[in-house]
């Protein structure tokens, strides 16, 4: 039985299993290539990965690892951050870069806020945030000439 200080590396085993699956998927894909030059490398690497994963699973079944102790952490905020960024990325072609960037920025300010919202912060943060987003937007579009998406909503 795993004790509190030591436990089986279940996470490692699951990841290894997933990587075996990925390796098999990759091997299967290599049989579809037209050129002999293109499958040697991925096939070798996928094979090696599967072998290493099997070794890791075997090793983990024998050897326990130290259990990690973690402090109080907020999972909802983590998920929120990733979601905000993904939504911004997917929204870009439609809403344009500026709008989706501003929305993501606002959402993440809210997610990363641990201090109380004072009146000063309510005024300063949105201002600073808009300035940063607009500043970068102009730096990229005007100086570096990057064609950031304008958004189909605005150009019809």
């Amino acid at each position: 039985m795993p004790t509190e200080a030591q436990c089986r590396d279940t996470g490692g085993i699951i990841v290894a299993a997933i990587f075996i699956f990925i390796g098999v998927l990759a091997l299967w894909d290599t049989f579809d290539y037209t050129d002999a030059d293109s499958f040697v490398f991925p096939r070798t690497v996928a094979g090696a990965m599967i072998v290493f994963c099997i070794a890791l699973i075997a090793w983990s079944l024998v050897r326990p690892i130290d259990a990690a102790t973690r402090g109080a952490e907020s999972t909802p905020r983590r998920v929120g951050l990733v979601a905000a960024m993904l939504v911004a990325a997917l929204l870009m072609p439609y809403a344009g870069f500026l709008l989706s960037g501003l929305l993501a920025f606002a959402a993440i300010v809210w997610l990363a806020m641990y201090d109380p919202w004072t009146r000063r912060r309510l005024i300063v943060y949105p201002l600073v945030g808009s300035a940063i987003v607009l500043g970068f937007y102009f730096l990229f579009t005007r100086v570096l000439l990057v064609p950031l998406p304008i958004g189909r909503l605005f150009i019809g």
Binding site: L81, M85, A104, A112, G129, I132, F136
Partner: peptide
């Protein structure tokens, strides 16, 4: 922190896009 995190997050979005003007890369 409430400004650092969104600023860096925004930089990753705009920077990744700019490498080859691609939403897929983001």
């Amino acid at each position: 922190k409430a400004l650092l995190v969104p600023t860096v997050a925004f930089m990753t979005l705009i920077g990744t896009y700019a490498i080859r003007n691609s939403v897929s890369d983001v």
